[in-house]
Design a protein around this nucleic acid. Structure first.
Length: 294
DNA sequence: CACTTGACCTGTCCGC
DNA sequence: TGCGGACAGGTCAAGT
């Protein structure tokens, strides 16, 4: 469910709450949601302390003092909810359902991580997401991480790099290329649509027909929408509940995503919803004219 | 190899 | 109200 800005928001929210905490136990009600062997879990997870919480692409990485890390991917419908045992602290972020504020565990709870002072619930309606324990120094051996593209917001990632990586997908449409995690990490359906709108590019445009300069504009646009989202508390939807239980923002900044039938803020025409790369796709047909289509 | 499609799951919404 | 089908902020395997 969350893309880079949402995962980054979750990371920032959990960091002050769980760093230094001791993990007592972890249990799972759906094997695929937490596929590790029991012996490995007991040895490297039970009794460990959390030393850091990082993010790579859309994956959250919780480092432990045992040389292992908990990797968490929320996929489409994942949530992370923290509840202090004494009720003093609450944190919730992810797919917007009742679970964010309701009693836990509930029917969507897949993994429960018990800490000394509180509990982390990993809820996931569709069961696509996962929590995985893995040696910290071997994370990059996992195929997904080995192939994962650069972080788009890191300053050492240049437009030249971006263009070079996109050119490997020169014969496909630009939306599919943006969603390809091996090109650049962390872009999902929302920010692909928003970035393409900002660069005035139609999502069906074949990469090979786009100039280097326009692709550089696309990176600038992508960075701009992601940075804005993180700055807004990361939330593009009703996905965040802070320590006092206060809810976060809605998709208020989006210019095209889920705005089909509404007015384009730039030209006044109606936003359309179409299908590109097998995904629901939002465009302004006037600001993003179709040039070359696959 | 590059690219597209179906599978993994459940819940919700929309039309009949 | 019930039912079928489409669809959902993601990735992987298998197909062409």
């Amino acid at each position: 469910m969350p893309e880079l800005p949402e995962v980054e928001t979750i990371r920032r929210g959990l960091d002050p709450i769980i760093i230094g905490s001791k993990i007592l136990s972890v249990s799972s009600s759906w094997p695929k949601s937490f596929p590790n062997a029991a012996s490995e879990v007991k040895r490297f997870l039970y009794g460990s302390h959390i030393t850091a919480i990082r993010r790579r692409g859309k994956v959250l990485i919780i480092d432990l003092n045992t040389g292992y890390s908990l990797l968490i991917h929320l996929k489409m419908t994942g949530q992370l909810v923290y509840r202090a045992l004494d009720g003093s602290e609450r944190f919730a972020a992810g797919h917007p359902t009742k679970s964010l504020v309701g009693n836990l565990p509930d029917a969507s709870t897949r993994v429960v991580i018990r800490l000394e002072k509180g509990t982390i619930y990993f809820n996931d309606q569709r069961k696509f997401g996962w929590v995985r324990l893995f040696p910290t120094n071997r994370i990059n051996d996992i195929d997904f991480f080995a192939k994962l593209g650069p972080e788009p917001l890191e300053s050492n990632f240049t437009a030249t790099d971006f263009v070079k990586r996109l050119r490997r997908r020169n014969n496909t449409n630009v939306k599919a290329a943006l969603l390809d995690q091996t090109v650049v990490a962390g872009v999902g359906n929302i920010y692909a649509d928003e970035a393409l709108y900002g660069a005035r590019l139609h999502p069906s445009t074949i990469v090979g027909s786009i100039s280097d300069a326009t692709l550089a504009d696309l990176l600038a646009s992508l960075r701009s929408v992601m940075e804005l989202s993180i700055q807004k508390g990361g939330s593009t939807d009703k996905t965040y509940v802070d320590a006092s239980g206060k809810k976060g923002s809605y998709l208020s900044f989006a210019k095209v995503f889920r705005r089909e039938g509404k007015t384009c803020m730039a030209c006044g025409n109606s936003i359309e919803k179409i299908r590109v790369a097998g995904r629901g796709t939002h465009v302004c047909p006037v600001c993003q004219p179709e040039i070359s289509k696959k």
